[in-house]
Amino acid sequence: MIRFMRSVGAQALERLASLGRATVMWGTAMWGLPGPGDFTLMLKQIYHVGVLSLIIIVLSAFSIGAVIALQFHTQLSRFGAEDAVGLGLALTLLRELGPVVTALLFAGRAGSAITAEIGLMKATEQLSSMEMMGVDPLHRIVAPRLWAGIISMPLLTAVFNVVAIYGGVIVAVEWLGSDPGAFWSGMRDAVELWEDVGKGMLKSVAFAVVVTWIAVFQGYDTEPTAEGIGLATTRTVVISSVVVLAMDFLLTLSMYGDF
């Protein structure tokens, strides 16, 4: 019994300590503004994290948009309300699916890569040799990745939303024959710039901060062994996904819930 309590306590302390380490790491990395030399580093990271994620984002967005439009169309046409397909599609995407699915894909595609990369740097002692040379790995390695993620994810979300809406257009308008005028005007009537587009983007920024933070920290804090890196990569994806979904609920509650 005592041993059980002790293990629970040790676990809790360990979690708390790693949360503390993560906060310190994030704080110090984000504190120093990127200098002109860091800009090139960041550019490279945006390429790795953002540009290379575009393909998976575009493909998933297209399928998701098409599926939502198809579902809305089949259900709504039973009531003769196909005109609401555009509206439903746009609101679902802008408010929820755009930011959330992008964050999940981003965690799987870019987050895991960041963790593995930094973890391997740690395992091969590149990080400690940097410190030895007087280069702060937080500024050289961690900060550009954090910033790149925060810049890339909202842009990816915007691309996701647009591609998904066009996926929906192709299914609902071109294929199933909804009226394009009703589709677009219904969408425009219902969608508000700040309330839907703006808040969706705000969500995406919040997810970006959290996902890149988790990814970088898991890599930075990993056990420097092959097994440790594997575990850290898995943890990045699992923790990011769970945190994104939980945060999404809380954000939605505070943004749209009136209570």
């Binding site: 842009l155 915007a158 939303n161 839907d196 587009v197």
Partner: peptide, 14 residues
């Protein structure tokens, strides 16, 4: 592309 997508969302969708 990201910026254009944002503008598109603002103008055409909302």
């Amino acid at each position: 592309a990201g910026m254009l997508a944002l503008v598109f969302l603002a103008v055409k969708v909302s």
